[in-house]
Design a protein around this nucleic acid. Structure first.
Lengths: 166, 166
DNA sequence: CCGATTTGCGCAATATTATTTCGCATTCGG
DNA sequence: CCGAATGCGAAATAATATTGCGCAAATCGG
């Protein structure tokens, strides 16, 4: 695993842990075809090297009382790096904003937001987001339903590419 | 935990497992202030009841060779339920599409896509997405950088609300 | 208000799993 | 062809998960 390159076993480990992050190490080892100790060493190395950023339980936000999900497309006045960074920091400070991506094109940022109800979101929108420095336009779209929510990366595509490269 | 309602310990469990999905049960028990066996029982019950949908390792897609992330805003011709469902099924079948949300407003769907490189994405865009039945407009925006990527739900907001309700 | 039922805790015992240690095989550069 | 480096896996040990109770507090019908 030295030079930062991954062999097929490493990729299999990542794929399995992406699919089930609580799999026991013995089960994982069985699936990738090596014994438990080297398997654990590989997992630790992958964590250490940053290929694995963390493990998270996927909670059902609707059941938890966050009925509203919204995508907000934000346009800024100035795209100077300092202003972009300042806006990003704002987003990090807002708990209702779960994701913030800087985009190219007319939209500068897209935010994925959650809220317990519409009025909570509206308050956030008008009092926080629209009121924020440097924000010019915000277009929001309510999520009606999530049709696909796959975490991470398509490992089947990755394997196909890896096979090509060989 | 009977009627589907959550007590403060359950919420703490969810918060902790959302933050670190591989935490051992003893550590979790320690943090939420009960002993290991009832803690494990609660976790199982939360999984069973669907509050926890699964556990996933968060892999670093860029390091894995998926350099390109794109948001695609899709407009359809017909919004009849059958047509919406057909499009959603298409999205589920496309590995490069990781998320698909149905929205209100002029945009019908927003897709979060990944690809190893731009040309792979362009091929997907022209040969698959734009060529798909019922698709009228697709606006794409490249992700320049991800400024905030918090999985799940803001438990601090949840706790604040829970406190109000009491 | 009281006893029966329910719910949920935690101790203690057992089964699984994680982690360390170490020796062996393979690879690689000289 | 040889020593160093890498990575595997068996075996031993340390932690953890899981099960099986008994017990206490809350709930409920009378």
């Amino acid at each position: 695993m030295s030079g930062g390159k991954l062999d097929p076993i490493d990729r299999k480990i990542l794929a399995e842990l992406q699919a089930d992050g609580r799999m026991t190490n013995v089960e994982l080892a069985k699936r990738v075809g090596i014994s438990a100790p080297p398997c654990l060493r590989r997992v630790r190395a992958l964590e250490e090297a940053g290929f694995i950023r963390g493990y998270h339980a996927q909670v059902n936000s609707r059941d938890l009382g966050f009925e509203v999900q919204v995508f907000a497309m934000v346009g800024l006045n100035s795209q100077a790096e300092a202003d972009l960074s300042r806006f990003e920091q704002r987003c990090r400070d807002w708990p209702l904003v779960r994701e913030c991506h800087m985009l190219n094109g007319e939209i500068d940022f897209i935010l994925k937001c959650v809220a317990p109800d519409l009025s909570t979101f509206q308050s956030f929108l008008t009092e926080e987001l629209l009121a924020a420095d440097n924000v010019v336009t915000v277009k929001t779209s309510l999520v009606i339903r999530g049709a696909k929510l796959e975490p991470g990366v398509p490992f089947d595509v990755l394997e196909a590419r890896a096979a090509e490269i060989e």
